[in-house]
Computed example of a mutant assay.
Amino acid sequence: MRHRRQFILSAAALAVAASLPLSAAAEAPAKIGFVYVSPIGDAGWTYQHDEGRKEMEAALGNKIETRYVESVAEGADAERVIREFAASGSKIVFATSFGYMNYVERVARQFPNVTFLHATGYKSAKNFAPYNARFYEGRYLNGVIAGKMTKSKVLGYVGAFPIPEVLQGINAFTMGARSVNPDIEVRVIWANSWYDPGKEREAAMTLISQGADVVTHHTDSTATVQAAEERGVYAFGYHSDMSKYGPKAQLTATTHHWGEFYTRTVNEVLAGTWKPESVWGGIKDGMIKLAPMNPAVPEDVQAMVRDLEGRIRDGSFHPFTGPVVDQAGTERLAAGAVMDDATLGRMDYFVQGVSSRLPSSR
């Protein structure tokens, strides 16, 4: 009798639930997947994306459920992870490295009802779009500080791969430095990896041994800042504030902030209003910020940088304002002209002031 009564009560409860409007029924949270190219750690590229994920979780609460896989190589493994997220019910997949682009494109065609966002790429489709930050804005400001702080007039830069976003940063850093110190020379060593602390450290140490008294990097680990701290030279962190790894060395850092973008994008997808538009946000959008400046930076230099930062924010100054001249002496942008986004996205050269050469395969 007791079992029959329980069944009747359960059936009644189901009937009541079925009669409720959809809005009254609890909806399952939307699944969202993140693919990370390096370990999360406590600083760096992936760390900043994961901080953005957490910020989004705090903002959206039980509307979403996030998952992530870290240290995913840019190859067949990336395609497998992206596909598994889509096949297991993810409504949105964020793939956070340049080398994931073609794999995202392939999987997006197979899952037309899933929305895919790809960091730093350039391809798009109906359910697939790129997003990026204007790293070069912070790099120009770092360059101005470097130009004022260097004594050797040699600056060092550890790069991952010679792709447009990295070249934009190197060139902006060089132009910023030479705007205040035209005798500056920038030397570049490629790690050929986004995340390889050993190679990054070796490259930074080599640059320092070549006379660089200020170094920076476009790689994911803190190795360059740590090397600078060890050798008693200055550095700029990247992606994150890395001052705890180089309290004396780090002058500031170009930091990236993704939380507002992730929150806004997910809200749009859930509301059905998202469109596959390329997003490229900078200082004015809050996606690029400078970390607090080291007290070693003189007050007049800090004031100069804050003024430039404000001008970038209000649109009255663009780091790639002509003349822009490459290493061969060819004018790439006329005096007074401002480089448009399409041209920036195709950047494949070093500007004057960079003494290193691009790999011959390019």
Rank of each mutant, 00 (worst) to 15 (best):
M1Y: 02
R2G: 02
S10G: 13
L20F: 02
K31L: 12
G33F: 08
Y36D: 03
S38N: 13
G41I: 12
Y47G: 01
Q48Y: 01
D50W: 07
M56R: 02
E57I: 10
L60W: 00
L60S: 07
N62K: 15
E65I: 00
T66Q: 09
Y68I: 04
S71R: 11
E74P: 03
G75Q: 05
G75N: 15
R83Y: 10
F85C: 06
V93E: 09
T96G: 10
G99W: 02
M101T: 11
A108L: 11
F116I: 11
Y140G: 05
Y157A: 07
Q168V: 01
Q168F: 01
I170R: 04
A172F: 01
A172P: 03
A172W: 01
F173D: 03
F173N: 04
P182E: 10
P182L: 03
V186M: 03
R187E: 12
N192D: 12
A203N: 15
D213Q: 12
T219S: 13
R231W: 06
V233Q: 04
Y234I: 00
D241P: 02
M242N: 03
P247Q: 02
L251G: 05
L251Q: 05
E260D: 13
T263S: 01
A271Q: 14
G272M: 05
I283M: 13
I283V: 15
K289E: 14
A303K: 15
V305G: 07
G315I: 04
P319I: 02
R332M: 15
G336H: 13
A342S: 11
